[in-house]
Nucleic acid binder design. Structure first.
Lengths: 239, 239
DNA sequence: AGACTGCCTCTAACAGTGTTAGTTGGCAAG
DNA sequence: CTTGCCAACTAACACTGTTAGAGGCAGTCT
């Protein structure tokens, strides 16, 4: 929002811009993680004391809103090659990689429903492809939300508890295999399936889990498209 | 871990048990939300000062691990009626309702991969039904993870930003419709789809979005089941 | 020139956070 | 009585987001 119409024609650099603020926040996030992104640290990154920030920004939440958009700045849509399914798959794979690439990005982005300009650009593109693929308007809108929520939710699980004590992250894989050991040790008469499937439950990597889930979702979209186009062919007598 | 073998045969009530601690934490969570669940408040809920808690619990993270299991205590599996699809749907619908019922439950639960006993009970049950439905072992394990991540991720989006400033929650719906207005106001030449689908994008309730997404996922599982059973029929020459 | 206004940053402070060190009270066993 | 353990305590550290009020510095008007 905001009506800041100026086209960067003000030659003086007033020291602190919202832009500079957000960019510094991005650097701090990358370096210290979401738990280390405090107003004081951000201020010191800019050579300034904390309360100064509150002149440029209402509160931390607003800063995170801006940061959310900045995090989407260099996310790019996949090339337009292959059928709709391949394009959507690539969309999700790239989005996940993007979120995992920037540190704790998912924890910042999650739950903010007002999309910034960069996200709007991506939504516009994806909606276009969905409509071209033949999805009904209402379905395209739903699918657009579904895919975003799906990938973000998945990456959130991957990142671990929201209250990130940091420090861990390396042992996260170890914990998983240790949990596997513990599964096998359960009483087989009351937990037969857990014991039998212990390996299948704890073995697969996050990568594998994600791409399995993604294929299921894409299958689901596939049948939706077939159904609706089938209905349309039956419904309209000619054509 | 710990080797506390005792079988509750110590008759005296030593004032503070891990059990009592977790139950009190649940009450505080319900009353104040995840942002208001601090060690000091939890202590005062028990008529005690904060540092006392650290005798019973290593740190807050461990407390949240315990709380996570307590949150799953009264989650119940759906009745075994209808086909596997109906049962899985009911599983997800109930799980979402359960998470939305307890305040901020999803924010506490999200990302903790070590399942407590209550969650183990649910997993065991669900895995059983998946295998009965005909899913391969590896697939059943994947689906079990997929459904959990899917519902939790979805509810997380619903709850709003992880840094819960609280105070909002009522205007969340208003913000959504306001965002709809803003969508319609975009330049139609660069954002034709967003403008055209503004109503479809912002109209549907979270309920509707969830059940749409859920049906897509179930469709995807359906085709997976058909494929694999088809392969099996073709693969084994007789039967 | 002087006064004034708006912009931007500062210091000081408040109320709260998770967590550790060291200390005390009470109770059972030797 | 003394020993030792359990389970609570006080005091403190290093933080957090945020506000109030002061001060300087630019440009503009009288």
């Amino acid at each position: 929002m905001a009506v800041e119409g100026k086209g960067d024609d003000s030659p003086q650099q007033p020291g602190l811009t919202r832009q500079a603020l957000v960019r510094a926040a991005l650097r701090v996030l990358e370096r210290e993680g979401v738990g280390g992104l405090s107003m004081r640290r951000l201020a010191s990154e800019l050579g300034v004391k904390a309360p100064s920030l509150y002149w440029h920004v209402r509160n931390k939440e607003e800063l995170l809103d801006l940061l959310t958009d900045e995090l989407m700045a260099d996310a790019q849509a996949p090339p337009r090659e292959g059928d709709w399914r391949e394009q959507l798959r690539e969309y999700c794979v790239r989005y996940r990689r993007h979120l995992l690439g920037k540190r704790d990005a998912a924890k910042v982005v999650a739950g903010r429903l007002v999309p910034g300009p960069h996200l709007l650009r991506l939504m516009e593109d994806q909606l276009g492809r969905l409509r071209e693929a033949g999805f009904a308007d209402a379905d395209a809108a739903m699918i657009n939300y579904l895919l975003g929520a799906f990938v973000q939710g998945f990456v959130l699980q991957e990142l671990g508890p929201l209250s990130a004590s940091e420090a861990m992250g390396a042992d996260r894989r170890e914990v998983a295999t240790a949990a596997g050991e513990q599964l096998r040790r359960l009483p087989p008469e009351t937990f037969p399936h857990l014991v039998a499937l212990a390996g299948d439950l704890t073995g697969p990597s996050m990568e594998a889990r994600f791409s399995f889930a993604l294929e299921r979702v894409l299958d689901g979209l596939s049948t939706l498209l077939e159904q609706s186009s089938g209905v349309r062919e039956e419904g309209t007598s000619h054509e």
